[in-house]
Amino acid sequence: MSETLPCPALPRRLGLIEDDAATAARLVEALPAAGWTLAWQAGSVAAARAELAREVPDGLLVDLGLPDGHGAALIGEALRRRPDCQALVISVFGDERSVLDAIAQGASGYLVKGQGDGDIARHLSHLAEGGSPMSPAIARQLLTQLRDRLPQPVAPGPGEALTGREHEVLRHIARGYTYEETAAALGMSVNTVRHHVKQIYGKLAVRSRGAAVYVAQQRGWLDRPDLPRR
């Protein structure tokens, strides 16, 4: 996956899609310190579509509940046009359901609003570094999905199945261990843990149908008769 998502040089440009003015203002304030510059800002699905038609930035921050529709669809649209775009969902609670839906659309993580400014800055800088937070509930959900619903990778391409290390990281996070503790237990650095988490998100996104079709198109698999339809 790292081949298909190359890391561009800093500073990176970010599109903010958020209808709550106060939250938007706080996020805009926190961007520069975390290594981002604001590319554009939109308060509705329609406005965001117009902006995306003009420019798909390096990163997207998407609030899911917008006045004229659901923000998750925008992530898919952006990714179809620029696969290396990193999209983050803005969530009030970080509860797994809406976040997982967005991840299935291709989002690579989420940001919890309603926390202190310090937390938001920390999350945004993690995002700039390519990592995104993962809660134990999400990790558990991912493990369940891996075990029950997706016994085999969607496509047999290299890198889509989780590696043993990634699986171990996921299991530690699901049982409540922090990134630091996980790193210590597995004998790796915190940054490596973050990298693994990012890889896991990426692979999950590939497992979603839209992304799988995209990847398949990229790799010229669509003329294969045995391409699974899910």
């Binding site: 609670f93 509860d95 134990p136 990790a139 558990r140 996070i173 699901a174 049982r175 409540g176 261990y177």
Partner: peptide
Amino acid sequence: ELRLSLDLMDEPGGDLGDLLGQLRF
């Protein structure tokens, strides 16, 4: 408090370790 309540409204999952994990989070 609200987040904890919402966590619990989701399916408890069945395993104590997973429940404790989210609590710790």
